[in-house]
Write a protein that binds this DNA or RNA. Structure first.
Lengths: 352, 352
DNA sequence: TAAATAAGTGAAATGGATTTCATTATTAAC
DNA sequence: GTTAATAATGAAATCCATTTCACTTATTTA
């Protein structure tokens, strides 16, 4: 039914092997023969049967992506970056959403293994030791693109969540804020949220401010959770002067609550988000945030994975993508002099 | 290296054929034999080699998704719906982004064909006759999940863009707006944007308002383009009292511009979006919009595709998902009496 | 020009499942 | 207790490309 290599071989008057060689750019074929074959390929509109190729060669040029919550703008851009770079490098993508459930992750891992994928990108929020163990015994190159994995064997690409969160709190305290509340991610999120929490704690300690666990309200990275977290915060801690939400959507939700209830931003309350999604430039006030590029993160993940697949020597299996604090209208700005003092400490601050 | 069916067969003391039968739930196998086989499968942690299976059976349980601009919240949710329902039905997804370029679409189409996908979901903004022809000669079930395709052979799932856009303008005119400007999508977008345009024109005609093509400013569905379109609109048509943006992001961009420049919303200018993304509930003012579920759209697309793959009889190969006009703060509301007059016309209006 | 080497090509084995067809074991029917 | 019918199983062909190995042809080298 379909055109096979055999048909091409017959039309070109050569053997199967020769056709295969031409198609794989083998140097062993005479120019003239190759030409005949190519003509036949074109004439018959021959398409290789990928399953047969994979069966024989055991490499699929297929990369699996397992993610969760990928509809979030930051992660949607991450996926876009993954796709673009994967295509660039000649991989196709097989994509599965785990909803953050271990069982589904496992399930997809199996399916993908059966399809002989060359490598996997994992974008999970909460990782389990179980998952890590499976991955390690998996024989297939894996890159985590969701946060820092301390296990030295596991390659990962991520923003430096600790440093970025530190930068935010550092800036806020320098701007005079002493009463800050936080909207963190789910406690189950052992990657982004936990790391950001560490950065916050560190900065508080350096600024000699007390750590008060009550001021960390749990959200789930949605607008809605930011909104209701802000409500809780203002009810419990009316003296708060700044809110740092661990992503932009929650920050926007919080802003909505605050403005709805008559608070001026940034004069009454300063708000900072995290991620730097496009939206933050169009809210009123515009959103101060940590800018990191999801697209870049995706790109780098594939780059790293590709190197692992090709068994190239790695400089480091922990890759950090750049971030910067983008100060917009939602917080009160530091004076030039104050800013300078930060810059000396090599904290990146940009106006935009 | 890998465990194969042969290994299972040997361990279970049966033939290859028997193992295959057990794995495919053939009724021809004695309970006892099946048990032996299953035990061996578990013991060896046997995983089928999917390529071999596909090669033999010519069905892959793989669905291809080719999209563009999937980082947009609405489409990201569409993808999520596709994924969830595909998993439900036992399909895995192979995903490619075409950037709206025909060449890339074609390229992915080929790659996917080579992988023997069972069906394709196409989410393209601008379709070409070329693409349609390829798809028709393609032998593989295809569903368009991006807009109405008039060609009767092509199955598609979409919101009724004409009716929805009509509803918006109808509401606005009833609310007294006579000077309305529009932020449409790219002219290349022959699906969503063109259809919405038709709905608008229709409503204007019914309301006996003039159609002035200058008032349709082209955007590209981004916040940024909404912002700059609003700027153009206010500069060229200072008498405008309402802006209808063809998606929510552009509406939010427009709102930002308007508020930045001292306009009151909705008192000076009413703003309506399209899609009903989550964000619209958290802007200030909250956004009036046409609500449609991307998730639902994705789900229905797979449902339809699955039926086509299974060669079931179709009721209709054009499927519409529901929409409703959700009136929020960004426009002035109709009185109950006025509202009632619309409802008689079976236009869905909801407060939220 | 003969011998040695390299280049180009083809035959056949191979990867791992499914499935047809033949065969054997079992049950039902008389 | 045979024979007929049915249920279970296995052997072997098949899906389609890659790759090893053997062989032929062309090119160097001496």
């Amino acid at each position: 039914m379909d055109v096979t290599m055999k048909d091409v071989a017959k039309l070109a008057g050569v053997s199967l092997s020769t056709v295969s060689r031409v198609l794989n750019d083998s140097s062993l074929v005479r120019e003239e023969t190759a030409h005949k074959v190519k003509k036949a390929v074109k004439k018959l509109d021959y398409q290789i049967n990928d399953s047969a190729r994979i069966l024989r060669t055991n490499t699929s040029n297929l990369i699996g992506v397992i993610g969760a919550g990928m509809e979030r703008p930051f992660l949607a851009n991450l996926l876009k970056g993954i796709e673009a770079e994967a295509r660039e490098k000649g991989f196709a993508l097989i994509y599965g959403d785990s909803d953050g459930e271990f069982e589904k992750e496992q399930n997809y891992l199996n399916i993908m293994k059966q399809k002989k994928i060359d490598g996997i990108i994992l974008i999970t929020t909460n990782y389990y030791n179980d998952l890590l163990n499976i991955v390690k015994n998996y024989q297939i190159p894996v890159v985590f693109a969701s946060g820092y994995i301390s296990d030295p064997e596991i390659p990962c690409v991520t923003v430096d969540n600790v440093a970025a969160a530190y930068d935010v709190v550092d800036y806020l305290t320098r701007a005079g804020h002493k009463e800050i509340a936080f909207i963190k991610g789910p406690d189950l999120d052992l990657l982004a949220s936990q790391e950001r929490l560490r950065g916050v704690k560190l900065a508080l300690r350096i600024a000699q401010l007390p750590y008060n666990s009550g001021r960390f309200i749990e959200g789930d990275f949605t607008f809605e959770s930011g909104y209701s977290a802000a409500e809780k915060i203002m009810r419990k801690f009316p003296k708060i002067t700044a809110i740092f939400a661990f992503n932009d959507e929650m920050a926007v939700g919080a802003i909505r609550y605050l403005k709805e209830n008559g608070y001026q931003i940034p004069d009454d309350i300063a708000v900072v988000g995290f991620d730097g999604i496009e939206l933050g430039k169009y809210t009123l006030p515009t959103l101060t945030t940590i800018e990191q590029s999801g697209y870049q993160l995706g790109l780098k993940s594939i780059e790293l994975l590709d190197k692992i697949i090709a068994e190239e020597e790695l400089e480091d299996n922990k890759v950090f993508i750049p971030h910067k604090l983008v100060v917009r209208e939602s917080i009160n700005k530091l004076s030039a002099k104050e800013l300078a003092s930060i810059k000396n400490k090599e904290v990146l601050v940009t106006n935009n």
